[in-house]
Design a protein around this nucleic acid. Sequence first.
DNA 1: GCAAGAACCTAATGCGCTTTAGCGACTAAA
DNA 2: TTTAGTCGCTAAAGCGCATTAGGTTCTTGC
Lengths: 336, 336
Amino acid sequence: MKDIARHAGVSQSAVSFALNGRPGVSEGTRERVRRVAEQLGWRPSTAARQLSGEGAATVGFVLARPADTLGVDSFFLQLVSGIQEVLAERHLGLLFQVVEDVTDECAVYRRWWAEHRVDGVLVVDPRTDDPRPGLLDELGLPAVVIGGAPDERHPGISTVWADDAGAMASVVDELYALGHRRIVHIAGLPGLAHTERRVRTLRAEAGRRGLTEVESVTTDYSDAEGAAVTRRVLERPAPPTALIYDNDVMAVAGVATAAELGFSVPADVSVVAWEDSALCRMVKPWLSALSRDSVEFGRTAARELTALVDGGPARTVRVPVPRVIVRDSTGAARDA
Amino acid sequence: MKDIARHAGVSQSAVSFALNGRPGVSEGTRERVRRVAEQLGWRPSTAARQLSGEGAATVGFVLARPADTLGVDSFFLQLVSGIQEVLAERHLGLLFQVVEDVTDECAVYRRWWAEHRVDGVLVVDPRTDDPRPGLLDELGLPAVVIGGAPDERHPGISTVWADDAGAMASVVDELYALGHRRIVHIAGLPGLAHTERRVRTLRAEAGRRGLTEVESVTTDYSDAEGAAVTRRVLERPAPPTALIYDNDVMAVAGVATAAELGFSVPADVSVVAWEDSALCRMVKPWLSALSRDSVEFGRTAARELTALVDGGPARTVRVPVPRVIVRDSTGAARDA
DNA sequence: GCAAGAACCTAATGCGCTTTAGCGACTAAA
DNA sequence: TTTAGTCGCTAAAGCGCATTAGGTTCTTGC
């Protein structure tokens, strides 16, 4: 800025005013300063800016997953891609970290907060009884919880969520209409808020229809557990006629396992995957799936966070209910 | 720090010396200061630190991919997970950005450099005729190219790479021994350095053995193109007896397509996937694959970058050659 | 014609840290 | 006794920016 000031023949403060759109300089000077800055390829030092009161121009994103569980899941990269789109417009950086568990995640938030490294954070995989919203609220670090249910206990925290309950209800509707009465839901990690929501809804829907042979089994989302649970339930005397998988990976593994056991999909057993991705169209039969726009989900979350960072109020935003895409893996129940 | 100084009854400079292990304070004072700092939960402001000459304590990572191509690919998350492991030890942050293409990527590097936002960057998907190493070398931004071939033109840039050529040679060896003489390599994006290396090596290996019906076809890595190319080559009068796919996603799509066309794997056509992942064990038959340790790859790259940032010399490091994991998708050629 | 105010600009301060220069007290060598 | 040197510490400057408190000149209203 000193250089710019010299070249433009004004003081450093004038440069600051000119470049930040503050009043106090004439339009002529402003334009001249702008041109010099442009020509010199000047960009403000984020560190200096931050030191004089501005934010860090950065938001944080922590992924708490054991390293080997990362991988095939397409949801996160899509989400991040949507987040980036919004952040990039406003020249905000994304500080990314992978940790082992929620405890480490909280430690990262504390560190970021103490070091003034981020202006806000995006929280994923909310849990029932989650320590994170409380911590962030207490630290006063703006945060958006992605995928959580609305939570009034932490007024400083925004929430962006999809209506899993509604989606689950529509899946059950669909399967019930096709004559399915014995349904197993191969769920994700227990303790995750959306897992619990789906499990609860399934139970409620079953109850409402008087179905007794409907249940949820939790897993770690891996293809291995998906396959194992599939094998276990299909080997029963009265195996289920429909399987709902909480992600695409387990669904694909489940279909392979079913085929191995001599079950034909969808003639003997119908399959629905919770996440739609290329994977669902890479196996035969093509998987019916619940589809949501993960990129848009990310965009929405990022927009909420920037609003919050700018001093806006915390809000709860619902994104559209995931839709069932019917493909080849669902059909009428054999015994219907 | 002012608070700490007051509590410990020393000057602020003494606190700085004590906390940074600099000489100039007695052991007693140092210990006392440490305790007070600990008790007050003090963490240095990265911004202030950076402003007084230290680095940004952050490294950058840009992924240049159209949003819809992101996704099923497990390589990147694994890589990032390895990178994080090393960075976390040293309390370095990872600034992450997704962009559309290499031009945008260069713009990001320029911005980060001008804003002093990062101490170094990790570059992935190197290309033949890549503008990035030149730019980074010119800017003087420490960088590690991941997956590139050694390049002497840019002495400031480190390289971490796997020997694709050796791996390709071993795959051809394997297939040749099984009697395969007509081989199609469904390659990745043209212009990527490792794509070109693999294509060149395949051609050389074929030449060495006098095979004329061996070729590479480039794609965009998507399941769609993988399937399309598979269909095209299998519908020929003399279809190949072996297919080498440059990633797991295309391999899986290819197997599905082959099955559709009435080709049995591996009886009619053998399949090898370049990347090993859960995906390869989620389809039947299980896919033979080239396996490498992507997490370790990430660790190595991060270690090189930290060494470079610390003022070490640029180096070229080779990670182990990917190994062929033989599963069920490769067998003797039918006409052998 | 003069005071009041607006318009445009500069000087100076501070953000939280590192670092250099310097200072007093003590010790060892001459 | 003096000189030089060391140890443990403090005072002060500076990193690049935003901001606040002036300070001129120019206009405006009476």
